[in-house]
């Protein structure tokens, strides 16, 4: 029972971590240009990372 009270919140915390990462990537504009980003990774001269 005590273990439950520890493991439950712990796994919810891990889930929250994933949710936070998703929210960050969304706000950061990482889904704005999926086609372009696929090409950008191959070219050193292009600006890398998401658009401002």
């Amino acid at each position: 029972m005590n273990l439950l009270l520890f493991l439950g919140p712990f796994s919810v915390g891990l889930g929250l971590l994933g949710l936070g990462a998703f929210a960050w990537s969304l706000r950061d504009g990482q889904y704005d240009d999926p086609k372009g980003d696929a090409g950008r990774i191959l070219d050193d001269h292009l600006s890398q990372g998401p658009a401002d």
């Binding site: 704005d32 240009d33 372009g36 090409g39 600006s47 658009a51």
Partner: peptide, 13 residues
Amino acid sequence: ATARFNLTTGKLS
């Protein structure tokens, strides 16, 4: 200063 072309939407900003 910066130029960025979005291949998905076709817009250069």
